[in-house]
C-alpha cells in the first residue's frame, strides 16, 4: 500500500503542525524527485539545521530525517511503500522551531550516539534488524511515552509514537486496518455511513 503526499499532509493536519499549509503550498505541483532539493531549505529555515559537528549540538536536519526514515521502515508494516517520501514530507512540517521539534532532534541525536557506540555506525547506516534491536535495547518497546522522561520514554514519544501517529492518522494508514477516516484525519462524513468494501 502506497503512502502518498496526501497522507503526509493529513498526518501533519492531525498533529497541528504549522508547516502543513506551507508544505502544501511549497510542494504544489512538485514530484517525488523534489524531496532532496527541498531538504536543505527546510533544514536551514529554522536556524537549527547547521549545527552538525558539535558534540552537544542538535543533529542537523539531514541526520534527523535519515534516522527517522530508517526507523520508519522498522516501525511500519512491510506492505507499506513510499515510506521515505512520506516521512520526509511529514518532517517538513514537524521540524519547525517548536519545542517539539527540539525534542525530536535531541532524541534522535541521542539515538545516533547510542548507535555509534553500540553498533559503530549512525542509525541510518544500520541494518533493519539492528535498528529494531536498538529501539528495543533503549527500552522504547515497553516504555510509556513521555516527552520529558527517560531516554526510553522520549524515544517512545518523539520517534516511535511520532512515526506511528503519522502513519495511522493518515488515510492510507487507516486503510491498513479497514478505516478510511482514522481519528485525527478530517476525512468527511460519508465513510461512517458506508458498509464494508
Amino acid at each position: 500500500m502506497e503512502l502518498t503526499r496526501r497522507d503526509a499532509v493529513a498526518a501533519l493536519a492531525a498533529v497541528g503542525a504549522t508547516g502543513g499549509v506551507a508544505l502544501a503550498a511549497r510542494r504544489s505541483g512538485d514530484g517525488p524527485d523534489r524531496a532532496d532539493a527541498d531538504r536543505d531549505d527546510a533544514g536551514r529555515a529554522d536556524g537549527e539545521g547547521d549545527d552538525g559537528g558539535d558534540g552537544d549540538a542538535l543533529p542537523d536536519d539531514e541526520t534527523v530525517r535519515a534516522a527517522m526514515t530508517a526507523f520508519a521502515t522498522v516501525l511500519y508494516p512491510s506492505e507499506v511503500e513510499g515510506v521515505e517520501a512520506f516521512v520526509d514530507r511529514f518532517l517538513d512540517g514537524r521540524l519547525d522551531g517548536s519545542a517539539h521539534a527540539t525534542g525530536v532532534r535531541t532524541t534522535v541525536g541521542e539515538l545516533d550516539d547510542a548507535a555509534r557506540s553500540w553498533y559503530g555506525a549512525p542509525v541510518a547506516e544500520l541494518s533493519e534488524d539492528d535498528r529494531d534491536r536498538l529501539l528495543r535495547e533503549v527500552g522504547a518497546d515497553t516504555a510509556d511515552e513521555d516527552s520529558d522522561g527517560t531516554l526510553a520514554e522520549r524515544v517512545r514519544y518523539h520517534v516511535v509514537n511520532e512515526l506511528l501517529l503519522a502513519l495511522y492518522a493518515s488515510p492510507t494508514g487507516g486503510e491498513l486496518v479497514g478505516l478510511e477516516n482514522p481519528q485525527g484525519h478530517p476525512g468527511g462524513t460519508e465513510s461512517y455511513r458506508q458498509g464494508p468494501r
Partner: peptide
C-alpha cells in the same frame, strides 16, 4: 490541532 494530538497521545 495541538490539543487534538494531546487527545490521541497516551501520555
Amino acid at each position: 490541532l495541538t490539543r487534538q494530538e494531546r487527545a490521541i497521545r497516551p501520555s
